[in-house]
Simulated assay, not measured.
Amino acid sequence: MPYEWTIAPSGPDRLPRRVLSAWPHRSLPKAGFAAVILGAFLFITIPLLGVLGTKVLWGLLPFALLTIGALWWGIARSYKDGEVLEELEIDADTARLSRRSARSTPQVWDCNTYWLRPEIHPSGGPVPSYITLAGGSRVVELGAFLTEDERKRLYSELIAVLKDIKSTAPSP
């Protein structure tokens, strides 16, 4: 599953923090990347064996190498775009969502846990079962890269975690 909950210790007089880490699913592991490139290279070079030793080979070879290079670049770009990590830290006082991506600066959102309201939008968002967090003056998205079932499961877990944190929080 491309997200997990952990418990991070806090100070001696505070309750522990719950930390949600979410990242995009990888459908092609690094070993699969190498296999795809090798397979494409083999399938492209097999037809070139028939023109080995002729001038036609030199006319086709640049296009074959360009195809392999473009495939390599496209998959590597996909990996780079998928280097996203969202972390939601929740304790009795504050909730902090940070989003780190390889192509942008880190984004951070804070609010008081008491005012934190997670919402799920079955339709109308960029994806089905869209999760947003409201609190303070902004509304932010959470886990838009997850599958619909994962977002539904995450939403119910988030509600349970918030209920648990708010029930165990010391009263002022």
Results as ranks from 00 to 15, higher is better:
89 E>R: 14
55 K>E: 03
24 P>C: 06
124 G>A: 00
70 A>F: 02
8 A>L: 07
169 A>T: 14
30 K>G: 05
155 Y>L: 01
57 L>G: 02
69 G>S: 11
64 A>S: 10
39 G>W: 06
104 S>K: 10
90 I>N: 12
22 A>Q: 09
158 L>M: 07
44 I>S: 10
125 G>A: 06
73 W>V: 04
90 I>V: 07
71 L>C: 08
113 T>P: 09
24 P>D: 12
150 E>W: 00
50 G>D: 11
130 Y>A: 11
84 V>K: 14
63 F>D: 08
112 N>V: 09
112 N>M: 01
110 D>V: 00
48 L>M: 15
148 E>S: 06
30 K>Q: 05
97 L>E: 04
148 E>F: 01
118 P>W: 04
126 P>V: 02
84 V>H: 09
105 T>Q: 15
163 K>I: 00
106 P>S: 07
122 P>V: 02
41 F>N: 13
7 I>E: 15
149 D>T: 01
35 A>D: 04
8 A>Y: 02
52 L>M: 11
151 R>I: 00
163 K>L: 12
16 P>Q: 14
171 S>L: 07
38 L>E: 00
40 A>K: 02
61 L>Q: 05
155 Y>R: 00
34 A>T: 09
34 A>G: 04
148 E>I: 01
111 C>Y: 01
77 R>H: 09
90 I>C: 12
157 E>R: 00
91 D>C: 06
23 W>A: 15
2 P>K: 06
86 E>P: 02
56 V>K: 10
126 P>T: 04
125 G>V: 06
56 V>A: 13
133 L>V: 15
161 V>A: 12
128 P>S: 06
50 G>K: 07
53 G>P: 10
23 W>E: 13
25 H>F: 11
133 L>F: 08
71 L>N: 07
80 K>I: 03
99 R>L: 15
56 V>Q: 10
97 L>K: 09
57 L>A: 08
163 K>A: 14
98 S>T: 10
15 L>V: 04
124 G>N: 01
129 S>Y: 12
57 L>R: 03
161 V>D: 08
154 L>T: 02
73 W>Q: 03
25 H>Q: 12
149 D>R: 01
146 L>Q: 12
62 P>S: 06
87 E>A: 14
30 K>W: 10
170 P>S: 13
40 A>C: 10
165 I>S: 02
86 E>Y: 07
80 K>N: 12
9 P>F: 08
83 E>V: 11
167 S>C: 06
170 P>L: 08
109 W>A: 03
46 I>V: 15
78 S>M: 10
132 T>C: 10
153 R>P: 00
153 R>I: 10
21 S>Y: 07
116 L>G: 02
123 S>N: 07
75 I>P: 07
47 P>W: 10
75 I>Y: 07
50 G>A: 15
122 P>T: 00
101 S>N: 08
117 R>Y: 01
153 R>F: 03
53 G>C: 12
100 R>N: 04
106 P>R: 00
98 S>A: 03
30 K>S: 05
165 I>P: 03
42 L>M: 13
117 R>D: 02
130 Y>G: 12
112 N>K: 15
147 T>E: 08
101 S>R: 15
59 G>P: 06
25 H>G: 07
50 G>T: 05
142 L>W: 01
150 E>R: 00
129 S>F: 08
59 G>N: 11
17 R>Q: 11
35 A>T: 03
17 R>T: 15
81 D>Q: 02
91 D>N: 14
8 A>C: 04
1 M>S: 14
108 V>K: 02
33 F>W: 05
13 D>F: 09
